[in-house]
Design a protein around this nucleic acid. Sequence first.
DNA 1: ATTATTGTACTAATTAAATAATACAATAAT
DNA 2: ATTATTGTATTATTTAATTAGTACAATAAT
Lengths: 132, 132
Amino acid sequence: MDKKLQENMPIYVQIMNRVREAVAAGELKPGDRVAPVREMAQDFEVNPNTMQRALNELEREGLLVSERTAGRFVTEDKELISRLRSEMAVDTVDAFRREMAALGYSDEEMMEFFRKRCEVTGSGALTLERIG
Amino acid sequence: MDKKLQENMPIYVQIMNRVREAVAAGELKPGDRVAPVREMAQDFEVNPNTMQRALNELEREGLLVSERTAGRFVTEDKELISRLRSEMAVDTVDAFRREMAALGYSDEEMMEFFRKRCEVTGSGALTLERIG
DNA sequence: ATTATTGTACTAATTAAATAATACAATAAT
DNA sequence: ATTATTGTATTATTTAATTAGTACAATAAT
């Protein structure tokens, strides 16, 4: 789970998305304990209040559960997690199609553009370029 | 060019993107006159100041030019426009791959997911669903 | 020449996000 | 029992985006 945040979206929302992704991708597994609020705040270089806001909302979603002083954990509900992953993927694909369509690309052209882009840049090149 | 705006990104940035897309897609052509600031502000249901901020920045980018009292126009620089379109498409594809990769999808799986999603929803279904 | 339309500039007020600084509550560890 | 660690709550401050309101400047239209 990468920590550098972008601009133009509330930090707490960005954090929520990062955690959602980490859980959806299986980087954080059901029942896994996550770091304490204060520690996560340091990791992400944000204020503890901001981190708590993000974590609280993720709890409302059922993705995390807090057990008072034992810490905070990823839900055991694997069904919920796999549903989350699917929904996020659908949203991502739809957002992609919508944006490319807005630029005047047909579904076929998108496909072709995607394929070409995969050839040019390997699989690993993107993350570092974009986030760093 | 659709007008409804989303949350979580500064409105003026969202407006900039909408205009960029409209120009890149050829919906606004080189030399086209755009509506006056005040009118656009009403169309987008934002404050005139906010609209002007967006338009000003688009001018700094060279995409728009203002001619004092005659109004504001799309640049005649077609080279600039086609370059913009390419860059936006690349950014969009890269963002897509990055997000899907974060969810644990390989390039091949993304491709397959994309294809399936295109089958399920036609080409037109997305815009209304998402933006409305 | 006058007027209306256009872009531009400026100051103030509002709102939400983020930070800062503490304090409290519950419990696992000792 | 005590202590340290954890989540939680609260209040104030700061910062940036947005709105509000107004005024000015240039010029096309009349």
